[in-house]
């Protein structure tokens, strides 16, 4: 069997395969979920897939650059946390103006103005 495709804890391929699965699940979630929170979960899965790749490559590369991938993964974790905070704030803001977080309903930027029902505008102090 080809060296590269060998599975097991001492081989890169297994880690990459898990990361690829994670990423694929994330993509599918992003494309199919209608709920904004589900969508964000998909994004987090993709982030983690990238982080897992970074750590896996770092583990199997030359010793003198090994730290790079782990540092990258740390960055990714921080970035994902910041992203989640911003995205949840956006979702909250969308909810306040649409009273809904169904992504199929929030399509007012599609350029055909007036094609969808006007959103309910909440009171300023709501």
């Amino acid at each position: 069997m080809n060296e590269i495709l060998r599975l097991g804890p001492d081989h890169l391929a297994g880690y990459l395969a898990v990361a690829a699965c994670l990423f694929a699940i994330g993509v599918v979630a992003c494309i199919t979920r209608r709920n904004a929170v589900g969508f964000l979960m998909g994004v987090e899965l993709m982030f983690n897939a990238a982080g897992l790749n970074a750590v896996a490559y770092a583990r199997f590369r030359d010793a003198h650059v090994a730290g790079d991938g782990q540092i990258l993964a740390l960055f990714l974790i921080v970035l994902a946390a910041a992203e989640a905070a911003v995205a949840l704030a956006l979702v909250f803001s969308v909810y306040r103006s649409f009273r809904d977080i169904d992504l199929d309903q929030t399509t007012r930027l599609n350029g055909t103005a007036g094609s969808d029902p006007a959103p309910t505008v909440p009171e300023a102090h709501a």
């Binding site: 992003c30 494309i31 979920r33 209608r34 969508f39 992504l103 199929d104 399509t107 599609n110 055909t112």
Partner: peptide, 17 residues
């Protein structure tokens, strides 16, 4: 071009990927 611009986030993600 606007046809691609459906306003559905899922479409955009699929397109980007």
């Amino acid at each position: 071009g606007n046809l691609l611009h459906s306003g559905r986030i899922g479409t955009y993600v699929a397109l980007a990927i």
